[in-house]
Design a protein around this nucleic acid. Structure first.
Lengths: 345, 345
DNA sequence: AAAATTGCCTAAAACGTTTTCGAAAAATTC
DNA sequence: GAATTTTTCGAAAACGTTTTAGGCAATTTT
C-alpha cells in the first residue's frame, strides 16, 4: 500500500537526472571523500533544485541507526521531569539526535510497555527514571542485554548493572537542609512527604533523621507525614487533616517536594498560621514556580535541566564511541544547593 | 555497518524454524485471514518462544506508515502545552500511535526546522501550535502539500487552508470573564498581559474591551499592561513597577494568563494590598497549580487536556480514513468555563 | 614501456518487512 | 470422478537507503 501519491524524489531520481549511479549520489550527499568535488557540487545543486529530502526510515533501516533517543519518565505533569527532558533535548539537538518522550503514567505496566516499544530498533538509546512502583528490573536488563545503551536518572536502582546512573545525593541534600533548619534555631521540625515506596523519599528522610542525630535534637514521630494519596486535591486534604490534628505545631517543616511544601503552606494559612512568622517551610526541587509562590519558597535546588544534559551527554557517548564507564564509575552525582527565600526567613 | 552484534531474530529465522515461507509467517503474525488458524498458533508460539519482535523501521519502510504523530509546541516549560500533549498522548495510545514532541523554543527558525524534520516520512501527521513570532506559513503549507495531515491548536492562523484548527473562543471567554467582573460591581478593571505579538492575547483584549462597551463602562488606558519581557524575573519586575506607578489602583485585574495573574498577585501583596479584599484578580488557563496558589486563583478554565484529545482524534481520522473536513468546517471551538475561586470573592 | 597506484565511479547486496501474483492442495459441486 | 471453488501457502518484488567489492581510466613509479 505504498501511496504513490506524494511525489517524493529519491536518490534514484537524482541519479537519473545526473546520469550518475545511485551510489555516487548517495556518497556525494553525505560528503564522502570518494567523490570528486566537482561532482559533489553538481549533485548538491540538483538535490536542492529537485527538493530532495533523504528518507530517514530507509536510512535507519540501512545504517542501523535512528538518531533518536527514547526518554521514559513517570509522568508528564511534574515540572521536574519536563525540566530534565528540556536538558536532554538541548544536548540531543547539539549532536543531531531527536528525542521521543514516553510517560509511564505512574504505572509499572506502562513503563514496561514503553521499554518494549523502545527495544524494537526504533531508538539508539534510552534515558529513563523509574516509577516508584518499579521493583523488578528485567525489562531494563533486557534492553541492556540487547545492546541498547541505557542511562538512568533521579529514581534509579543500584540493582542494575550496565547502565549509567545520574542522580543527586538525596541523603546529603536533605541532611544539609535539615541541618540548616536546626542551626537556625528551629526546636521542632516536622517532615511531610509522599509514599514510602519512593526510594528518593526514603533517602531524604534518612538525611532528615541524621541531621537530628548529629545535632542532638529529637523529632517527634507525630510530626511525620507520608501522604498516601495521589491526586492534588486528596493530598491537600491529607496534609490539612494531619496539620489540623496536631496538638503541638512544629517551628518548621521540611518537605520532600516543592509540591508538598506548597500544600503545607496552603494548609497552614488556612489554619490561621503565618508563614514564615509562625512556621517555616523548606521544600525540595526548586521548581520554576517556587519563586512565584507567595511567600517565595525556600527549597533545595536540584539541577534538573543539567541532570538532563548530563544524562544525554553520557548516553550519546555510549552510543557513538561505544564508550562505557567502567564498573563502579558509572554513577554521576550532581550537586544541590539550598536556596533560601521567604518561607524560612 | 550493520552491527551483527545483537542477535535479533527476524521473520526469516522464524520461517526457517517452522519450515514455512517468510510471507506466511508475516501474515500469521499480523493475523491475516489468509492463513489457517492452526498455522497461526504454531507461528505465534514459535515467535513467543524465540522472542521475536518485529522491526518497526522495516515495517515503516515497507508499509509507508510510521504510527508516529509529530507534535510541535512553542515551549516545554508552559504547563498548558504539556497538558495538551498529555491529551494527545492519551488518544494516540488508544489508536496505537506514539508521539514525538518537539519544542520550537519560541523561535520561528526552530519551528521551521522542526517541520522539516517531520516532513521526512518520519511521522504520519503533525499537530502544532505556532510561536508568536510565526507570521509566514510556507513551512506548514509545504507539509500539507506533501500530503502530511496537519492539525493546528491554540495559537493558529486562519491563513492556512487544508489543516484543521482546534481552538477556544478567546474573545468570547475574555468577554465573559470581564463581564462577570463588571457585573460583580468592579468599577474599574485593569488588564495585564504579554506581548501584543500573540494573537490570542489580542483576542482576549478585544473581549475585555467589548465587555466594557456593552456594559457602558470605561476602562483606563493607564490600567493596561502588555509585558515585553520574556523571563519570569523580568516580567515580575515589569508588573511590579507598573503597579507601583499607578496613581489609582483598579478594583480588579483581568490577566490574560494564570502566570500573569500570579505575578500580579505577588506584586500586589508586596505593595501592601490584600487579594481579594482590596483588589480582585482573574486569570486565564486554569492550570493545575491555580488551585494550589494562595489565595486560590479564579480563572477561565481552558480544556487543555481535552484540546489535545480532540486534536489527536481529528488527526488520526485524517490519517486513517483519509477523511478531511470540508472547507469552512475545519474549525473546532472548545468551550471554556469560568472557575471562581478565592481571588475574585 | 610495463607495472603499480590512485581517483572516480558503478553494480549489486543488504537492512527486515509487506504485499502482489500465482500455484498447489483441499474442499465442494456437478 | 471431473470440474470448480476455496483455502492455504510461497517466490519475488518493492520500500529508499548504505556499503562492499570491484572496474576502468588516469597518473605515477619502476
Amino acid at each position: 500500500m505504498n501511496s504513490k501519491v506524494n511525489p517524493n524524489i529519491r536518490l534514484e531520481d537524482l541519479a537519473r537526472a545526473l546520469k550518475l549511479s545511485i551510489a555516487t549520489v548517495s556518497r556525494a550527499i553525505s560528503d564522502s571523500p570518494r567523490v570528486k568535488p566537482e561532482t559533489k557540487k553538481r549533485v548538491k545543486a540538483m538535490a536542492e533544485k529537485m527538493g530532495y529530502r533523504p528518507n530517514q526510515i530507509a536510512k535507519s533501516l540501512s545504517s542501523g541507526k535512528t538518531n533518536v533517543i527514547g526518554v521514559i519518565i513517570p509522568r508528564y505533569d511534574e515540572p521536574f521531569f519536563i525540566e530534565v527532558c528540556r536538558g536532554i533535548d538541548h544536548i540531543a539537538r547539539k549532536y543531531n539526535y531527536r528525542i521521543v518522550i514516553s510517560s509511564s503514567r505512574n504505572s509499572y505496566k506502562f513503563e514496561k510497555e514503553n521499554t518494549f516499544a523502545f527495544e524494537k530498533g526504533v531508538v539508539d538509546g534510552v534515558i529513563m527514571s523509574f516509577t516508584h512502583h518499579t521493583k523488578t528490573f528485567t525489562h531494563v536488563d533486557e534492553m541492556i542485554s540487547r545492546g541498547l545503551p541505557v542511562v538512568l536518572f533521579d529514581n534509579v536502582s543500584s540493582k542494575i548493572k550496565g547502565a549509567a546512573h545520574v542522580i543527586i545525593d538525596d541523603y546529603e541534600s536533605a541532611f544539609q537542609a535539615t541541618d540548616l533548619l536546626i542551626k537556625e534555631n528551629n526546636k521542632s521540625i516536622g517532615y511531610i512527604s509522599g509514599t514510602v515506596m519512593k526510594t528518593v523519599f526514603n533517602k531524604r528522610f534518612d538525611g532528615f533523621k541524621e541531621a537530628h542525630i548529629r545535632n542532638n535534637q529529637v523529632y517527634d514521630e507525630k510530626h511525620i507525614l507520608n501522604c498516601k494519596s495521589i491526586h492534588q486535591e486528596h493530598e491537600y486534604r491529607e496534609v490539612y487533616n494531619f496539620l489540623n490534628k496536631l496538638e503541638h505545631m512544629p517551628n518548621a517543616f521540611f518537605c520532600s517536594t516543592d509540591n508538598y511544601a506548597m500544600l503545607t503552606i496552603k494548609a497552614l494559612i488556612k489554619l490561621g498560621y503565618k508563614v514564615p512568622r509562625d512556621v517555616k517551610v523548606m521544600g525540595f526541587g526548586n521548581l520554576h514556580y517556587s519563586s512565584m509562590f507567595t511567600p517565595e519558597l525556600s527549597s533545595v535546588s536540584q539541577p534538573s535541566f543539567y541532570m538532563g544534559e548530563v544524562s544525554a551527554e553520557i548516553l550519546i557517548s555510549k552510543i557513538e564511541k561505544d564508550y562505557y564507564f567502567e564498573d563502579g564509575k558509572d554513577e554521576v552525582i550532581l550537586p544541590t544547593k539550598i536556596v533560601q527565600r521567604e518561607t524560612t526567613r
